[in-house]
Amino acid sequence: MSEKTKNTQLRVSPSDEELVKSAKIGDALAFEQLVQRYEEKIYNLIYRMVDDKTIVKDILQETFIKAYRSLPSFRENSKFSTWLYRIAINFCLMHARKKKKKTLPLDELIQTEEGEIPKDIPDWSSNPEATLQNKELKNKLESAISSLPDDYKSVLILRDIDGLSNKEVSKILNITVPAVKSRIHRAREFLRERLSEYFSRN
């Protein structure tokens, strides 16, 4: 192994915190690295949050430009990713408000009353069709997610698709952990019902 490859392997990529510190004192390349790290994640978050896919690229730009301009005032008492997710979510919600999208409260979407367990549930969990390779099911799931009211959709995306903790989600959305837990629970149940419908029809 040559010296050069050894060096490359030994080099540990800097943490977000280190990059933030460098970017704050004017290191543009450090900021570029942060952008590289989060471009795809933020793109996907926005893509799933908004209905109008033509505005995804605008919100993506707005998010990172806002992050760049606000960096001097980022106090680093949360993770950079939490802060960035929050900027992106706020832009998504702002655009949704502009469009005055009418959303039904989840109570109306979920037919069962809260706390009441639905009866006669077919168990499709071990059905070989219950996989994302099943394109029809995947589409059903994605469209069910996109039909969730924004408050629930954001929690579901961050919690179950991005795999963030309840605590991180609560910081990003500025709501309490119990509120995150209650929303994730109801969002999951909504999706479970939609998937059950799919299996009862097929």
């Binding site: 969990s125 219950a130 994302l132 099911l137 994605e142 179950d160 698709i161 999951r188 999706l191 998937l195």
Partner: peptide, 12 residues
Amino acid sequence: TFKKTVNLCRRI
């Protein structure tokens, strides 16, 4: 089915 739903979301 609840667990399965969550697992499907996690695999997206």
